[in-house]
Design a protein around this nucleic acid. Structure first.
Lengths: 147, 147
DNA sequence: CCCTAATAGACCACTGTGTACCACTCAATG
DNA sequence: CATTGAGTGGTACACAGTGGTCTATTAGGG
């Protein structure tokens, strides 16, 4: 099974077009073809799932018992996603609605997250990396993981 | 199992090319081949893992129950890494995105850390060593280790 | 019902970056 | 002193990435 890894710069133009990084695109197309599902779990991040993978997630999501508020909220968000195709040049077009919701335009970063790709504004990505300082307790936690 | 040891001077040129110290490179290639994963755990340090080793860490990281904040932060950081190959001259090219985020350029130090290599700016390495004064209590602690 | 306007999608052409290749210097060893 | 290999730097070419244009389709208004 392909594992998406690595962060790559990307730009979202005014029409919402984004070129997927060649490496990630190759992996994706080879393993799953060109059909994808684009949605957002969080306000600041867009996710690109191979359709095949997404269907599995959808399945699990809908089968959750009791339908807790958190799950309902997530389903609500995720429903504004879009099924899309990767075009011949390796680009996808992010619908205006999604772009507005997630606020990705201009400079962005696409990062592989094992089974999906994440698209965020570059500014935000940089801020995360710079500010992500760990408290002593957190360092302690990590130390215990024995990585 | 190979154990990476020792600190070596290195330079990161304007294109992001770094020659891995011959000794470390030999060890790495012999034991794991040329595929590596470069990422950053902390804002000032780049880590070079043999891909094989990295996959193990990834596994453990993703399988952590509960997903504590510290772990989530770490995953966030680590996702902006890059899977790379060592070229015929023993060099790797650090992508611009990573260079910006970690601020390694020009004079650097590459140090073996048992199962990965660390790359930092030489300036910083020197500063750390200078400031590393030990309190009396800490000296006491060390003494008890009977090294 | 037809025509016009607007928008989305496909096509095409250019540009800049990254990668591969090559050449040189310096240091170490025999 | 010569030879080898590590380390460094430059160059050229291919292609990933980018942006613009054109066409087709749809919706809205006359």
């Amino acid at each position: 099974m392909a594992r998406f890894r690595g962060g790559f710069p990307a730009t979202v133009d005014v029409k919402g077009r984004v070129k997927l990084p060649a490496r990630l695109r190759e992996q994706l197309e080879e393993a799953f073809g060109r059909e994808i599902y684009v949605c957002s779990f969080f306000p600041y991040e867009l996710r690109v799932y191979p359709l095949q993978v997404w269907e599995g997630i959808e399945e699990r999501l809908l089968s959750k018992p009791a339908m807790k508020p958190a799950v309902l909220k997530l389903i609500e968000r995720v429903n504004y996603g879009q099924q899309l195709d990767i075009d011949d040049h390796g680009r996808i077009v992010i619908p205006a609605l999604l772009r507005e919701m997630v606020d990705v335009e201009g400079e962005a970063v696409i990062s592989g997250r094992i089974n999906y790709l994440a698209i965020t504004r570059r500014e935000r990505a940089a801020a995360i990396l710079k500010d992500l300082s760990l408290s002593d307790e957190e360092l302690e936690e990590l130390a215990q993981l024995e990585l």
